[in-house]
Design a protein around this nucleic acid. Sequence first.
DNA 1: ATCAATACGGTACATTTGTACCATATTAGG
DNA 2: CCTAATATGGTACAAATGTACCGTATTGAT
Lengths: 208, 208
Amino acid sequence: MTANGIVHRTNEEGTSGASPVPTGRHDPEGRRRQIVLAAAELIPEVGLAKLTHRLVAQRAGVSLGATTRYFASLDELRSEALRVMAEVLEAELAATRALLEDEGFTPRSLTKDLMAFLHDRELVRIGIELVFAANADPVLRPLANLWTEGLVELLAPALGPVAARGAALVMDGAAMHASINDEPLDEALIEQILGTLMRSGFPDDPPE
Amino acid sequence: MTANGIVHRTNEEGTSGASPVPTGRHDPEGRRRQIVLAAAELIPEVGLAKLTHRLVAQRAGVSLGATTRYFASLDELRSEALRVMAEVLEAELAATRALLEDEGFTPRSLTKDLMAFLHDRELVRIGIELVFAANADPVLRPLANLWTEGLVELLAPALGPVAARGAALVMDGAAMHASINDEPLDEALIEQILGTLMRSGFPDDPPE
DNA sequence: ATCAATACGGTACATTTGTACCATATTAGG
DNA sequence: CCTAATATGGTACAAATGTACCGTATTGAT
């Protein structure tokens, strides 16, 4: 579910449409964004370690110089790309919220949503690469924490803080597993685990 | 608990004692191992991306040439270092097994052991870096899976497959969290979560 | 239409890094 | 004690990469 993939733009002169700059040339803002999007698309593919100016330039369809003028350093370009990636996860989180509010906070609905997430290689890689980045640079920790903490906040009102954290941890673990295995964990298995956590009545868990 | 830290050797001429080669020179086997250990010590510190021949040579107290002669490529050196790191985790797993068999498979004992793990920055980093490596190179996937799968195998006989997998996922998630936060999650919280999973009687879970 | 301002593309350079090499030091055997 | 074999350490080189620069093309204003 949820059409993702950062952006999916053509390689030639992306900004088409009714923008103030028609041809695509001389559009600093759009060009900068174009480069960031290329980087955000590339990181889940090749990993943070192999992200270079030249690779980004090639993917974005711009010259090497363009990738250096708009960003003080490669670190800055990386950071902005990671921010875009985090936004993708936040959008996914919003979709999850909508689905749960529609279908209810049941093990079935949560599992179904998680499985869709786990089957999307790019989304899983986005989450993992964010954790990598946060390990290499503590400044990026908030970005990496967005997904998990957002999940806890989403689930806590319905499940209570303990079950919410437990479910979030399980989902994180399942994502990590999916990132280093060809197939995600079995759906029925995950549903049983999440079901156990969600149905538990913790002493300090608010009933609703 | 468990004195870890890869090896903790001095920088000057590590191999002391009653080995066949007293001074430390002309000892290819020991020298090779010395280099691998330095790399295994370095990876959790600086991350896989910043591991270079020169950095390893400096830490091991050997020349640059030594790091290239004993390993066909940097990849090979990295792989062997990762294998050592995986062995450290396996040793930790064995310690966990011993503790659980002694104290029983209770939420309390499992949580206590997990908290000790989470408070050990190096151990946590080892686990995370192994996952990084497996993401970059599928050949290394088995190494990264050792910890989680070993945990499942350890817990399954006592808890059944579902609870075992659930607990392992929670522990993985907690490790990921610890790697990008100053403090691990609250101990009481984790114990409640693990307790819920461990006390659940799943329909298909063997009673013992 | 002309021109100043600015974005652009390609090149160049310094640094880092993986890898190969060679002279020297050290060891073991005769 | 002498010598051949081998380990060692420092150097050298090629490729990759981050970054700076410069001439050119494009744009909007006059």
